[in-house]
Simulated scan of single mutants.
Amino acid sequence: MILSSIVLYIILFTFLRYHEAIYQIVRWDSGIRKVVIFRLDSIGFGVLIAWICYYYEGFVLIHKKNMLFTGLLLLMLSIIVFSYSTLTTRETMFNKTLLFTITNSSLALLLPWFNYICSNNKLTIKLVSYVSITSYSMYLVHLSFVIPGIKKVLMANIPWYLNYVLYYVSTMLISILIYKYFERPITKLREKF
Score class of each variant (00 low, 15 high):
K34F: 12
L127M: 07
M93R: 07
N157C: 15
F38Q: 00
N163Y: 10
N157H: 13
I43R: 00
R39N: 03
T171F: 05
L166F: 09
R27E: 15
G149M: 04
L173Y: 11
K151A: 08
V153C: 12
L189F: 09
I80K: 04
S137Q: 01
L8E: 09
Q24L: 14
I147F: 05
D41Y: 05
Q24P: 13
D41R: 03
I25K: 01
N115S: 10
F45I: 08
R27F: 12
V60M: 01
L166A: 07
V141L: 01
G71Q: 04
A50D: 04
P112Q: 06
W51E: 05
I6R: 00
S137P: 00
C118P: 12
H63E: 09
R17T: 15
M1E: 09
M155S: 13
I62T: 07
T101H: 02
F69R: 06
I2P: 05
N120F: 14
I117N: 07
G31Y: 02
N95P: 13
K126T: 08
R39L: 03
V36T: 15
R33T: 12
S105T: 14
L77M: 14
S4W: 04
L74V: 06
V7L: 13
L61Q: 05
Y84M: 04
F15N: 07
Y139M: 12
G44A: 03
S144I: 09
F100R: 04
T124M: 10
I174V: 14
Y179W: 08
M172T: 14
P159Y: 00
F13C: 04
L189N: 08
I37Y: 06
L140E: 00
R90T: 11
V7W: 07
F69C: 15
N95A: 12
T124K: 07
E91H: 08
W28F: 10
F193G: 06
I178A: 00
L8C: 09
M1G: 09
T101P: 00
Y18N: 09
P159R: 06
L48P: 10
T103F: 11
Y136C: 01
E91Y: 02
E20C: 13
R33S: 14
T124Y: 07
I125V: 11
I25H: 03
Y116T: 15
F59S: 12
V128D: 00
L173D: 08
K151D: 14
L177I: 14
L109V: 09
L110S: 10
G149Y: 01
Y23M: 09
Y23V: 15
L61Y: 03
K192H: 12
F15G: 10
T124P: 12
L40D: 08
L162V: 14
L166Q: 05
T187I: 11
I150P: 14
K152M: 10
K122A: 15
I158G: 07
V36F: 10
S129P: 00
L87R: 06
Y23K: 04
L177M: 11
F145L: 08
Y161A: 13
I186T: 08
L143N: 05
L177K: 05
I22Y: 03
F145C: 03
I10H: 06
I62F: 02
I43P: 02
L75W: 13
V47Y: 06
I2L: 09
R184K: 08
L111V: 15
M67P: 00
V35P: 05
Y181D: 11
L162M: 13
